[in-house]
Write a protein that binds this DNA or RNA. Sequence first.
DNA 1: CTACTTGCAAACTCTTTGCACCATA
DNA 2: TATGGTGCAAAGAGTTTGCAAGTAG
Lengths: 135, 135
Amino acid sequence: MKLDDELRARGYRLTPQRQLVLDAVRTLEHATPEEAHAWVRERSAAVNISTVYRTLEVLEEVGLIKHAHLNHGAPTYHAADAPEHVHLVCRDCGKISEASPPTVDLMVQALVETHGFVADVSHLTVFGSCQACAR
Amino acid sequence: MKLDDELRARGYRLTPQRQLVLDAVRTLEHATPEEAHAWVRERSAAVNISTVYRTLEVLEEVGLIKHAHLNHGAPTYHAADAPEHVHLVCRDCGKISEASPPTVDLMVQALVETHGFVADVSHLTVFGSCQACAR
DNA sequence: CTACTTGCAAACTCTTTGCACCATA
DNA sequence: TATGGTGCAAAGAGTTTGCAAGTAG
C-alpha cells in the first residue's frame, strides 16, 4: 500500500498534498473532507479544500481509501487497509462505534443467496440506538 | 395512520400541502425531496420546494414517514406504514432493490448481543453489487 | 380572530469547476 | 520542459431561514 507506487501505476504524480491527505485519513480513521482538510492545514497551511476533495477522489480511485456515509450526507473516508468494519451510528447521541465483519457475515451470505447481491461490508452503516440510548 | 389525527395530536394543522406531500411519499415509495416536489407540483402548481422540505420534516416527526440514505447524500422518504424493508443499492448500475427483514434479522440479533446496539432496519442501506453487475 | 403555514427570496453549506501558475518526473 | 497538480475564485446543487401575507381551527 505505498502511495508512491499506487499513484504512479496509474499515471498520477506523488505530491506533498496527496501524502498529507492520505496521512490525515489514516490518522483520523473516520475523516470527512472538512476534517481531513483541517488536519492537513495544521501541518501545511496553504492546502486548499478543493485539493482535498480532488485528492480524496484520486486516493479512492487508486484504492488506497474508501468512504462510507455515516451521518446525514457527509462522506467519511478511511484507509482501505484498515481492518474491515461495519459502522454503527447512534441516532440519539451520535456516537459512532464499530462492529467486526463476522457480525454481519450471515447477512451478507443471506443477501448473496436470496438476491445475488454482493454487499460491500466496509461501506455498510447501520443506524439505530447504542446500548446507552436504547433504554 | 390518519394524517389528520397524527398532526392534530401534536398541534399541527392539516393543510392541502401536507396531504399532497404525504401522498407523494406514499405513491413514489422512495422519494427524494425533489421528486416529491415534482409529484406535488403536477397536482398543485404553486407548492414551493421549501414547503416540501418543511413538510417532510413534520411528517417524519409525527411518525408518518421515515427516511434512508440511498445515494451519495440525498435522503429518500417512504411511508412509515409501508412494509419494513432493507435497501440494496448497486454501486455499479445504480439499481435499488429491496430485501425483506428476515434476511437481516440474524445480523440485528448479533448486534444486540455483541454491542447492545438496536438497529433501525428500515433505515438500513446496503451498498454493493447487484446480481447482474457482480460478475 | 389568532396562531400556525406558506411562498418567496436570500442566505448557507458542501462540493465542483475553469483557469493561470507551479512542480513533479 | 511537458504534463499533471494546485490555489483561487466563482459557480452549482441542495437545503434552510426570515418575513410578510394567507388560512385552518
